[in-house]
């Protein structure tokens, strides 16, 4: 993610929409992808992304520059996505469905690689659907966004050992998913 200057943040905090657009351009990819992987649905990801940036815009005046702006945006993004997911799970009585709309765009392509990619995305979505939202957020930040444990802990506002235990439980769950078997 490109660096965001304090001057740009202050301009956006004063209501400069063009400055805020620069911040959006620098951070929206991360926010959208975390939302997409966490909610497993493009419409929900778009909705979460909008919510996140409206929260960021409305809270910019309160940003005290004590922590990294990037981490602050990450935290709002992940928490908004997790809350959205939990609310949706409650609404659907805990049932998390695979949404075929998430990864159906590439299948129509004639290239074989497109089909492989679509299948890979489908599989990934299925695996993430096996996890609860907190575990899913940890896996997304680690496996897809490549954050280290310290950054994950800062982003989620949790202890680094909680990151470890969530990753361990998530991976134990993924190890039990259909596929190559490991027999002790």
């Amino acid at each position: 993610m490109p660096e965001i200057s304090n001057e740009l943040i202050m301009r956006a905090a004063k209501g400069d929409v063009d400055a805020f657009e620069e911040i959006y351009k620098a951070t929206s990819r991360f926010v959208y992808n975390v939302a997409l992987r966490t909610t497993n649905n493009r419409d929900n990801a778009s909705e979460v992304t909008q919510d996140v940036f409206l929260k960021v815009y409305n809270s910019l005046r309160n940003f005290a520059f004590r922590s990294s702006f990037k981490t602050w945006v990450y935290r709002i993004a992940v928490n908004t996505a997790i809350n959205h997911c939990k609310a949706r799970s409650r609404h659907e009585r805990g049932r998390i469905e695979y949404d075929p709309a998430v990864h159906d765009t590439e299948v129509s392509g004639s290239a074989r690689s497109g089909l492989d990619e679509a299948e890979s995305e489908r599989r990934m979505a299925h695996l993430l659907g096996l996890l609860d939202p907190d575990q899913r957020a940890c896996i997304v930040l680690r496996e897809i966004e490549g954050l280290d444990y310290r950054s994950i802990a800062d982003t989620l506002g949790i202890n680094i050992n909680t990151v470890r235990s969530r990753l361990k439980r998530a991976r134990e769950r993924l190890m039990k998913a259909p596929g190559k078997e490991w027999r002790p």
């Binding site: 990819r29 959208y32 992987r37 990619e117 990934m124 896996i139 496996e143 897809i144």
Partner: peptide, 9 residues
């Protein structure tokens, strides 16, 4: 499983 994850705008 996650190595090929696509990143989208």
């Amino acid at each position: 499983q996650f190595a090929s994850a696509r990143v989208e705008d």
